[in-house]
Computed example of a mutant assay.
Amino acid sequence: MIKSLLLCAALLAAGSAAAAPSDYPARPIRLVVNFPPAGPLDLEARAIAQHAGKILGQTVIVENRSGASGNIGAQSVAQAAPDGYTLLMTLDTLMTVNPFIFKGLDQEVTRRLEPLSLAGSFGLALAVRPELGIGTLDEFLGYAKSHPITYASAGYGSPGNLAFEKLRLAAGMEVAHVPYRGNAPAVNALLGDQIQAAFLAVPGVLPHVKAGKLRAIAVSGKERDADLPDVPTAAQSGVAGLKDYDVAFAFLVMAPKGTPGSIARVWEKTLAQVYALPEFQQSMAALGMRGPFAGRDEAQAWVRREALGWKGVIEKAGIKGE
């Protein structure tokens, strides 16, 4: 009898934990951004917070907790109660890259978080200095055979590092990597002639390309970038080994694992409404964000696919976290 009562109590407790309160959200929601303010991730998070707050009738507070390639902010959310009041806005590399370059992270953080939504994707542009006299990716690879090439990135495991290492492995290049603490210093290093090339987010490099200070010779995605329509994709370069080259990164909205399905559905529906707003779409286009903007299933599929691909690149390139 006692065992039966204990079992019933456990089942009732589990059922209550899985159900969302009927008044959710009843208090402000915290949206943690695990990178510094003023970057694309932070700006999109603030746009989501503004629009979602209106839809939900509750304040959504953006809190920046950066450091350790996003791990610090992610850990704070992973340790939060799975009640829908603490969410995470992150670059997908937290789930697709960090577990392979930061020892012990998989158990500690990534398995305690689950995607709620895929909040857009973006590609990179391979930029060089015009003084090199290089106009195409094929010419760049030829130049690299007889000249030392140093490239910059925002750090080990950053999008620029990953994209360049994938290119290096596919094309058989010999290059040196200089990691900087953020995208802005990497751009400045290229402008200052401290390095020869870098894969950079298009919005960050576009003004310098238009001013003639840098030259974009390829974009990383499978389609041309709307802001650089005359720049071919790496796959379109005609270079052997690059016909399947396709590199894109995404933003994810995540929650602590164990968040009730009903709360997850509230957010999936709310975010779909946010993504459909013309003003949101315009602001995302200005940030260089493209589709897909999608729900939980698509987000989980993205993470699985990208993690599998980056695991192989990281192992072959020997990328290790700082």
Rank of each mutant, 00 (worst) to 15 (best):
I2E: 15
S4L: 14
L7R: 14
A9M: 12
L11E: 06
L11R: 11
A14P: 01
D23T: 12
D23Q: 06
A26S: 15
P28W: 06
P28T: 14
P28C: 05
I29M: 01
V33S: 08
F35D: 15
P37R: 15
P37V: 15
A38C: 04
G39S: 13
L41M: 09
L41I: 11
L41F: 07
A47G: 13
Q50W: 03
Q50C: 06
H51Q: 14
I55C: 01
I55V: 10
L56K: 02
G57Q: 04
Q58D: 01
T59W: 01
E63Q: 15
N71H: 12
V77I: 08
V77D: 07
Q79D: 15
A80S: 15
P82Q: 07
P82T: 13
D83C: 12
D83E: 08
Y85I: 09
M89A: 15
L91N: 15
T93H: 06
L94D: 09
L94I: 04
M95Y: 10
N98G: 07
P99G: 10
F102Y: 15
G104I: 14
D106R: 15
E114L: 03
A119M: 05
F122D: 02
F122G: 03
A127S: 13
V128T: 11
I134H: 03
T136K: 06
F140V: 10
F140Q: 01
L141D: 05
I149K: 01
Y151N: 02
A152L: 04
A154K: 02
Y156I: 00
Y156H: 13
P159V: 08
L162I: 08
A163V: 09
F164A: 11
F164K: 01
E165H: 11
L169C: 04
M173S: 10
V175Y: 00
V178E: 10
P179F: 03
R181T: 14
G182I: 10
P185R: 02
P185C: 05
A186S: 12
A186Y: 09
A186C: 09
V187W: 05
L191K: 12
G192Q: 08
Q194W: 08
A197S: 11
A198Q: 05
A198S: 14
F199S: 03
L200T: 05
V202Y: 02
P203I: 01
H208P: 00
L214V: 11
R215I: 05
S220R: 10
R224M: 04
R224K: 13
D225H: 11
D225E: 09
D227C: 00
L228E: 09
P229T: 00
P232Y: 01
A234F: 06
A234D: 06
A235E: 01
Q236H: 03
S237V: 04
G241D: 08
Y245C: 06
V247C: 00
M254G: 04
A255T: 13
A255Y: 00
P256V: 00
P256K: 02
P260Q: 07
P260S: 10
G261N: 11
A264N: 07
V266R: 05
K269Y: 07
L271R: 00
L271Q: 07
Y275H: 07
A276T: 09
L277M: 14
P278E: 00
E279S: 08
F280K: 01
L287D: 05
L287T: 07
G288Q: 01
R290H: 11
A294T: 03
D297W: 00
D297E: 10
A299V: 08
K311Y: 13
G312P: 02
G312K: 12
E315G: 09
G321M: 00
